[in-house]
Design a protein around this nucleic acid. Structure first.
Lengths: 247, 247
DNA sequence: GCCTTTTGTTACATGATGTTACGCAAGCCT
DNA sequence: AGGCTTGCGTAACATCATGTAACAAAAGGC
């Protein structure tokens, strides 16, 4: 891939140039933008791979801009914000942001997020499950999203709990793409109807959840074939997923 | 139906535009309004399908505004509020709000409510059952509201108590829409002829009532197909409902 | 007033989910 | 290769929401 072109949108001049420089030093083609107009200028000018968007622009709200941009064309967006409150995060995802990072952030983390989003964008997948199809097949299994049923290769039906179902949906939407625990947790907050509960990444709920799902869909949970773990990163769903509409 | 036109009334600029954007993102024509005057402007301008009204406007009380609007013309209204106290909710219903949602709310839930109210408005029904039709069919069952009889798919008649009937009516009026226990309780107070009695949601009467209704209309009450539970939310009636007039 | 039916309350069982603790395995260093 | 560090798997426990039986209180019917 060519060098990715990024836009850094922030109304604070210092932050803007600092981030831009940092990204440039790390091999990205980064441009500072102060306003929505500047963004549009770049968008018209040609390919833009990713937008880093501050949520607290002076006049407008980042989330809104994000929403508008997504409506016009499919540019990946990472929201940057000093607000860590969960409802803001939720809203960011709802309008289609690909990720969300809170200030002050670890520079390495920022790079990791940027790379992750670019990676996903290349395959035109999205972190959050939002397909219209409702039947998925993978490795002999099939999952009917409408009836909420999972059937094993042998034809047995497996009952999944709500969270397990939500996790499976997230995985099915992102096959072969390593997801961090945070990404999974955030996606679960959106898809999993698990609202209100999870305050933050307090413990290792994701690991346990993954373990439980493995217990139900892996032939041998001890050596997982589908739900692989990426040490130091998170988990990957290592299966080809085909989808069909059953409506 | 044409794209529904909604008004978002809230005195907090951030909330206002966030909700507006979110609704637009989801296919609605949404306009932010800060004051009652702005609302009137839109109302004069033409068709308005639904108003989302914050109860805590700076100067006036949302409930009062709602009351005034309803007196003038029949615009559906959803009250939005940070107050979850039941008496506020009740007041909202009394002056004719079609629904009530507490902040902070799950975005998906908001969409569901909005769609529900629009849906109902099209048929001039309301959260509270008040249709002119009297025969409902769902999943092989049929319910004659005039004779107050429920017939099973096999043709057996099932006797429902007053509360069970009231619950079924509420459910039939809101298929596929998750209802909280509070909402159910409030609706029951209105439809269920249980006037005067129920002081508040003291215990778990709703759960028990749901259980009893399940025992009568579910093939297997242990794994309900019609009256599903939404953990952490409430209950949903997961069946398509068709209606016919039998008058 | 007495009996029957309905409705609400309580208490306990169940199941789902998050947390903790501990052991093992993978990686890293020398 | 051997030992140390860290991350992961997982059992065991803690917590909470829900299902439900059993009882109590109310409402009606006669």
């Amino acid at each position: 891939m060519a060098i990715p072109k990024l836009l850094v949108v922030d109304d604070d001049a210092e932050t803007r140039s600092m981030m831009t420089q940092f990204l440039q030093q790390n091999g990205f083609m980064a441009f500072p933008c102060e306003t929505e107009d500047a963004i549009r200028h770049h968008l018209k000018g040609g390919r833009v791979d990713l937008i880093l968007l501050d949520v607290m622009l002076a006049d407008e709200n980042g989330v809104e801009i994000c929403a508008r941009l997504r409506k016009e064309q499919d540019v990946p967006v990472i929201l940057v914000s000093a607000l860590s409150a969960d409802h803001h995060r939720m809203k960011g995802y709802e309008v289609g942001a690909d990720d969300y990072i809170a200030k002050p952030f670890n520079p390495e983390l920022l790079l990791a997020r940027v790379r992750a989003v670019l990676h996903r964008a290349n395959r035109s997948a999205s972190l959050v499950y939002r397909r219209s199809v409702s039947v998925f097949r993978f490795a002999g299994w099939h999952y009917d999203a409408k009836r909420d049923e999972v059937t094993s290769p042998q034809g047995y039906q497996v009952a999944l709990s709500r969270k397990e179902t939500a996790l499976l949906k997230v995985l099915l939407a992102n096959p072969h793409i390593p997801l961090t625990r945070d990404e999974i947790a955030n996606a679960l907050d959106v898809t999993g109807e698990a609202q209100g509960t999870a305050p933050e990444g307090s413990g290792r709920a994701i690991d346990v959840l993954v373990g439980r799902l493995r217990g139900k869909i892996e032939a041998d949970p001890k050596s997982p074939e589908l739900l692989r773990t990426e040490r130091g990163i998170g988990y990957v769903f290592a299966a080809d997923v085909t989808t069909e509409d059953s409506a």
